[in-house]
Amino acid sequence: MIPALIVVVVILVLIIGAIIAIYNALVRLRNQVDNSWSQIDVQLKRRHDLIPNLVETAKGYMKHERETFEAITKARSQAMGAKTVSDAAKAEGALGDALSKFMLVVENYPDLKANQNFLSLQEELTATENRIAFARQNYNDQVLFFNNKIQMFPSNIIAGMFSFTKRDFFELESEAERETPKVSFS
């Protein structure tokens, strides 16, 4: 009687221990996902703050490019108003497109390209774009890992019990990216 009781107790303790461990791992992963999302958020904010300066500096040189500026300003306000991850992704993708178009147009204005202030803004913009890309890379890595953990046995049981839900990837949707599909043969 007593040995059987001990066995049952030991098994119960082991199961509870496993549940606690898995639950803690899930919480840690979710926090990592949240943290890497806030990293993206910081960088996107930085990008939004940079744009008015950039537009202001460029405006004096580029009198005939009103459409480009309007596209950037509009995309920026849309991106700043986005609420969900997928909305933000769409708006940020459009903003990225507008910015890269703007950078192409800049090539036609040698005076602007010689402006020291503009040059440093341009380096800041490039750096911010890179930071967004790397923050996104990190976020997507974390999301993939978190989603895998939620779907895999046995952690999927605990995830279901405590209602851990899948997260969305942050994919910037952009026209430019869709235009050049990559084909890999061999």
């Binding site: 890379q137 942050f170 952009s174 990559k182 890999s184």
Partner: peptide
């Protein structure tokens, strides 16, 4: 070859690489 396509699409999903994210296949 199918394997290759599949692999590159996953990569695109994960890394968010602009070129490989072709939703055509």
């Amino acid at each position: 070859m199918r394997r290759l396509f599949a692999a590159s699409s996953v990569r695109a999903l994960i890394s968010g690489d602009p070129v490989a994210a072709a939703p055509s296949q």
